[in-house]
Simulated scan of single mutants.
Amino acid sequence: MLRRLALTAVVSLAALSAAVPAAAAAPLPLPLPLPLPLLHGDDGRTRLTVTVSNTGDPTSEGVFELECGPAGGSHPAARQACDRLDELAAEGADPFAPVPGDAMCTQQSGGPATARITGSWRGRNIDTVFDRTDGCAIGRWNGLRPVLPDVR
Results as ranks from 00 to 15, higher is better:
111 G>R: 10
44 G>Y: 01
1 M>H: 15
114 T>E: 09
122 R>E: 12
133 T>P: 11
29 P>G: 02
38 L>I: 09
99 V>G: 05
53 S>M: 03
131 D>G: 03
80 Q>M: 11
64 F>M: 05
134 D>V: 04
87 E>V: 01
18 A>P: 00
59 T>I: 09
70 P>I: 06
108 Q>H: 07
89 A>K: 04
136 C>A: 06
47 R>E: 13
73 G>S: 08
87 E>T: 10
120 S>D: 15
40 H>V: 15
77 A>V: 13
141 W>P: 01
33 P>Q: 01
121 W>D: 07
50 V>Y: 05
58 P>Q: 12
144 L>K: 06
104 M>K: 13
101 G>W: 05
48 L>C: 09
115 A>E: 09
91 E>I: 00
92 G>P: 06
20 V>Q: 06
99 V>Y: 04
145 R>I: 13
75 H>V: 12
24 A>L: 15
21 P>L: 03
50 V>D: 05
3 R>M: 10
114 T>Q: 13
37 P>H: 07
120 S>N: 15
71 A>Q: 00
42 D>T: 14
104 M>L: 10
50 V>F: 06
9 A>M: 11
15 A>L: 14
130 F>W: 10
45 R>C: 08
130 F>T: 01
43 D>K: 07
36 L>A: 11
146 P>K: 02
99 V>P: 07
33 P>C: 05
71 A>L: 11
125 N>V: 12
15 A>K: 00
124 R>T: 13
81 A>P: 10
112 P>T: 13
92 G>C: 06
10 V>I: 15
61 E>H: 04
16 L>S: 05
75 H>P: 01
117 I>W: 06
117 I>E: 06
48 L>R: 01
58 P>S: 11
144 L>W: 06
86 D>G: 14
44 G>S: 01
81 A>Y: 09
145 R>Q: 11
127 D>M: 02
140 R>H: 08
89 A>V: 07
80 Q>L: 14
77 A>M: 15
52 V>K: 04
9 A>W: 11
4 R>D: 05
40 H>Y: 12
97 A>T: 04
65 E>G: 01
7 L>T: 11
35 P>Q: 03
35 P>D: 08
40 H>G: 15
145 R>E: 13
26 A>W: 11
85 L>E: 04
83 D>T: 14
74 S>F: 10
138 I>E: 07
123 G>V: 09
113 A>S: 13
111 G>L: 00
19 A>G: 05
